[in-house]
Design a protein around this nucleic acid. Structure first.
Length: 134
DNA sequence: GCCAACGTTGGC
DNA sequence: GCCAACGTTGGC
């Protein structure tokens, strides 16, 4: 079991949209590092859902339902998509500000590489963030 | 709205 | 293959 974090701008596609749709195709990733992470996702892996730009915060937990396949929005075989569904909403959002206050979370991709849109989390990092949101 | 960080492109 | 220029992302 692996743990991940994906970012989305709520104005483009937010947690509420995912809950409403029950399932979404996570596509449009055009960055090699993020792509490699998408390819490494396995069914049932848990994915923190992070809102960027407006009130940046982790707002929910999603689950991988379909592993990487060719991104249907492009002919380019470099790019893949996965399918995600909502797993559990966090009782309260874990803000970026909060994450920055936790010493054990200073090494996650979110902090170190703020522009990466799909990143891996260690199990203990995942648990810490879930703990902050419950 | 601004600016820093970073990825990508293109000239040489 | 290097590096400057440029575009995009995301925090503030």
């Amino acid at each position: 079991m692996n743990y991940w974090l994906v970012k989305s701008e709520p104005s483009t596609y937010g947690w509420d949209d995912l809950v409403k749709e029950k399932k979404t195709m996570w596509n449009g990733v055009r960055n090699f590092q993020a792509r490699n992470n998408l390819k490494a996702m396995k069914a049932d892996d848990l994915v923190l859902f992070y809102h960027s730009v407006n009130n940046p915060a982790v707002v929910g937990i999603a689950k991988v339902v379909k592993e990487a396949y060719q991104d249907p929005t492009t002919e380019d075989a470099n790019w893949v998509a996965v399918d995600l569904m909502p797993h559990e909403a966090l009782a309260k959002p874990v803000t970026l500000q909060k994450i920055k206050e936790v010493a054990d979370l200073q090494n996650i991709g979110l902090i170190r590489q703020s522009r990466l849109s799909v990143m891996a989390l260690k199990p203990e990092e995942f648990d810490l963030i879930i703990g902050l949101g419950s």
